[in-house]
Design a protein around this nucleic acid. Structure first.
Lengths: 68, 68
DNA sequence: ATTTTTTGTAAAGCATGCTATACTTTTTTT
DNA sequence: AAAAAAAGTATAGCATGCTTTACAAAAAAT
């Protein structure tokens, strides 16, 4: 699953550390999400989307054939 | 986090087994989600929302002060 | 160019989502 | 009332999200 975290972060001039603190996770978590190491939990996805004033579906991009 | 899975399922006359198969998880997972034992993953939340033709935020209800 | 800030890598460990199996209770159907 | 279908409970175990710590590389600021 792709996401627009890095893009939104740069558009809004927010550092990884700032975002991490705002959504209450470690910076490692943000790095790993941006680099596609794993997917966010639903709650974290919600917090991140909220932080940027978006819907979850606008930040996290689900493919048609999202097997896993 | 609350969700409307059971409600949507009954409105649409869908059994747990049918929903489980449609979104590719076991029936136990649906039961556990409905009974609030844990939260769905982002991917599963997306599949369930899609199945009912809704946005994730319409199916999963995040509280203001969602600590955990 | 040197310092400071920001980003990145790696790995061990804990927490939570999900499966699998087996069995019980409730609801629906006949 | 009896049978069948749907919903529920419980538990062990595996998979994935997230933390923690420590250190390295790249980018920005002075």
């Amino acid at each position: 699953m792709q996401n627009k975290i890095q893009q939104l972060r740069k558009e809004n001039k927010v550092t990884q550390a700032e975002l991490a603190e705002a959504v209450d996770v470690t910076r490692q978590t943000i790095i790993s999400l941006e680099s596609g190491k794993y997917n966010a939990s639903l709650l974290l996805a919600h917090k991140i989307a909220c932080y940027f004033g978006k819907k979850i579906e606008e930040v996290f991009l689900f493919e048609e054939d999202e097997k896993e």
